[in-house]
Computed example of a mutant assay.
Amino acid sequence: MLEHGGNLRAASIRFNRPLADWLDLSTGLNPTWYPAPQLADNAWHRLPETDPELVRAASAFYGAPRMLAVAGTQAAIQALPQLRAPSRVVVAAPSYAEHAHHWSRHGHSMREVEYDALDAALPDCDVLVLCNPNNPTGATVAPERLLDWAAQLGRRGGWLVVDEAFGDTAPHLSVAAHSDSPGLIVLRSVGKFFGLAGVRMGFVGAHAPLLSQLADLLGPWTVSGPAQQVSTAALGDAAWQEAMRARLASEGTRLRTLLAANGIASSGTDLFQWWPEAQPEAFWQHMAERGIWVRLFPKAARGIRLGLPLDEEGWWRLALALEEWNRGSR
C-alpha cells in the first residue's frame, strides 16, 4: 500500500506525541469542513441505492451531463485500468501516486512523463492520465488543451483521464462539462474542497456506456446512505460554496505569503502549497518534532507539500516553526 498524507496515528507513535497535539497539514483538505446535516432516521437502515437527487446535485455542481457516484475517486482510480485491454498508458508526473500504481498492475505498458512533455507523448499512448490542478505541485493545463488531447485520443479509441479532485477552487479549469464525449473521463471528489474525506464520496463523469461498465464492475451499494445524504446537502449549498471559495482564496494567499517570507518559493492551489525542498527529510523532521505533520516527497519529486491551518493558533505554530527552520538551515 502506498503512503499518503493524513497518517496521523503513525506520526503519533513515531514521535510519541498524542493525536490531539498535532497540527495536521499533510493532506491538503479544507480544514473547515462542511457542517454535516442531521441524517434521516432510516439512513443507517436502508440499503444504499443511489439517490437520483445526489446525482442531480453533483451534475449541477460540477456542470457535467451525467455522473456516477463512487466511494471516493480512489474507487474509480483502482477500477478504470480493469476496463481496458492492455494499452500504452502515460501518467503525468509527478502526480498522485495511485494512478501510476494501478495502471501498472493490469497488463498495461505504463510510463510516467513530466507535464511539459505530455504533448510529445500523446501520439504514442492510448491512455493519458493527469491531475488538474496537479497534486502535489499545483501545475495546471488549460481546458482547451485538454479537450484537444481528449479528441485525439477519442478518435482512436483512447482515453484522457482528468483527475479534478482539487478543482473546486478553480472551476474555470474544469472539463467536466464535456465529459459526455467518448475519450474523456473526469474524476471529482467531495473530500477536498468540502473537507469531507471521511464520507468517501467521489464522482466520475464520462459517456454513458463507460459509466455503465464502471458501475457493473464496482457492483451495488458502493456508497453508504449517510454519505449520500451529507454529500447531497454539501453539493447543493451554493451560499456555503461561494463563501468558502472566497475564504480559501484569502487563506491560500496567506500561506504563500508566509512561505515566501521565509525564503520558500512555492506553487500549489488555494488548499495546499508545494516546493522542491533541498532538504526534504530534514524539513519534515524539523516540523514533526514541533508537532506539525507535513507531506514528505522523498523520491523523484523531492519536496514538501503542506495545507492550511485550521485556526490562528495553527497559523502561529506554523509561522514559528518556519522561522526556526529559516534561521537554522540558511
Rank of each mutant, 00 (worst) to 15 (best):
W44P: 02
A79R: 10
E144T: 11
A150D: 09
R145V: 09
H45G: 03
D126L: 07
R84M: 08
S104E: 11
P52D: 07
A120T: 08
L128M: 15
Q78C: 11
R56C: 01
V141K: 07
G72L: 02
E53R: 14
R46H: 09
T137D: 12
A43Q: 12
V127C: 14
C125D: 08
N134W: 05
V113D: 04
R105A: 15
L118H: 07
W44K: 00
A76P: 04
R111N: 01
A117G: 04
V70K: 01
E114S: 14
L83G: 13
Y62D: 01
S104C: 12
Y62G: 04
L83N: 14
H106V: 05
E98K: 10
M67S: 03
L128Q: 05
A142V: 05
E114F: 07
A92G: 05
A142F: 02
R145W: 05
Q82C: 13
A75F: 08
Y62A: 01
A60E: 00
L83H: 13
H45A: 11
E49H: 15
R111V: 05
G63C: 06
G107E: 07
V129R: 14
A43L: 12
P143C: 08
M67R: 00
V70R: 04
D124E: 15
A69M: 02
A150R: 14
L68P: 05
P48T: 02
N135P: 01
V127A: 09
D148Q: 14
T73L: 02
P94Y: 06
P52G: 06
A43V: 09
P143Q: 10
F61W: 01
A60K: 02
D148W: 04
A151I: 00
R145N: 04
A93G: 03
T73V: 06
V141M: 15
A79L: 07
V141I: 15
E49N: 11
W44A: 09
D51C: 01
W103H: 10
H99L: 10
R66W: 01
I77L: 09
P136I: 07
S95W: 03
H101T: 03
A64V: 01
Q74F: 06
L47P: 04
T140Y: 02
Q82D: 10
C125Q: 09
V91I: 11
Q74P: 01
E144Q: 15
L83P: 12
Y62Q: 02
V129G: 14
V55F: 01
L130S: 12
P94E: 07
S59C: 15
R111G: 03
V70F: 01
V141S: 10
A151H: 13
T137Q: 11
P48V: 02
P65Q: 07
D126F: 08
S87W: 10
Y96G: 11
S104H: 04
W149R: 06
M110I: 04
W103N: 07
A97W: 03
D119A: 11
A85C: 04
L122H: 06
R105D: 11
Q82V: 00
L47V: 00
R46K: 13
Q152G: 06
M67Y: 02
D116R: 14
H106S: 12
W149S: 07
S59M: 00
A151D: 15
C125M: 08
H45I: 08
R145L: 13
P133C: 13
A97Q: 13
A151V: 00
